[in-house]
């Protein structure tokens, strides 16, 4: 079985994000980049499916991102993925979801696949669009926000549970299909030291837009980010303290009336 996993390089969730002066993006100075958390569930699920199916099953990582993404691709290889395609082209900049999907669809079609895993969204811009556009372009079923995944014994379909507000929805999908992964689907494994050593010898095929047959960035610009704006600063929290609760309440009422002027 040919398993593809999509990977995106995003700022660490623990990083302090500051918007640059021009408002064209974030200040990347000193910011650590990691594999999109939800994509890690995808990698782990891909590896589990490979272990379940066995034979000559293979997990291939597909990543579109700058040269610096190599280290993250290598991490996925160290976790156990077999090889990778890295779409890297300086002309790309920050493509919108539609452009991303066109390029990924071409790379994915070139690779061939039986199943695709990706995160339910990238934790940087939270668009959560690429997998759906991709499914349409590839003309395959898509199931999003997958929290439980089960492959049928004959490997032709998957029964999954989608996490929705207040419960789960059980869905069956015929393969090939694309599944976007939710937290809780699995516990991603660590890159073991033997895994790290093996990853050094695994192949990362770098592809430019020209390699994929594109003369220029495809798709036109369907959506454009005009400006990045910082969140308005929240007012400082003030604790109203007093020996007795009733005094604190009285003081709070006074502040709300006289200072905040809201009552």
């Amino acid at each position: 079985m040919k398993i593809l996993v999509l990977l995106k390089r995003v700022p660490d969730t623990e990083a302090r994000i500051l918007i640059n002066q021009e408002g064209t993006g974030i200040n990347e100075q000193g910011v650590k980049f990691v594999i999109n958390t939800y994509d890690e569930y995808g990698i782990e699920q891909g590896l589990r499916i490979r272990e379940q199916v066995g034979g000559d099953s293979k997990v291939t990582v597909v990543c579109m991102g700058p040269g610096e993404a190599t280290e993250l691709i290598r991490t996925a290889l160290a976790m156990g993925a077999d090889d990778a395609v890295h779409i890297c082209d300086p002309a790309l900049g920050k493509p919108d979801p539609f452009t991303s999907a066109i390029i990924l669809a071409k790379a994915i079609t070139d690779e061939g696949f039986d199943i695709i895993f990706c995160g339910k969204q990238a934790i940087d811009d939270d668009m959560a669009q690429v997998q759906s556009i991709l499914a349409e372009m590839l003309d395959i079923p898509q199931v999003n926000v997958v929290a439980v995944f089960e492959l049928s014994d004959d490997g032709t379909k998957a029964t999954v549970r989608r996490r929705i507000e207040g419960g789960d929805e059980k869905v069956e999908a015929r393969l090939p299909a694309i599944f976007s992964c939710e937290k809780g689907l699995n516990e991603p494994r660590y890159a073991s030291l033997p895994g790290i050593m093996k990853a050094k010898k695994k192949e990362i095929r770098t592809k430019t837009l020209a390699d994929l047959g594109f003369g220029e960035v495809p798709g036109g610009t369907r959506s454009r980010v005009l400006k990045w704006l910082p969140l308005p600063k929240g007012a400082e929290c003030r604790m109203v303290e007093a020996e007795e609760m009733k005094d604190a309440v009285a003081e709070l009422a006074r502040l709300l009336r006289e200072e905040a002027k809201v009552i």
């Binding site: 991490t75 660590y190 050593m197």
Partner: peptide
């Protein structure tokens, strides 16, 4: 090296 950074990441995460 890249390999040393990966090792450190695994150690740190663990």
């Amino acid at each position: 090296t890249e390999e040393e950074r990966l090792l450190r990441k695994t150690a740190r995460d663990f």
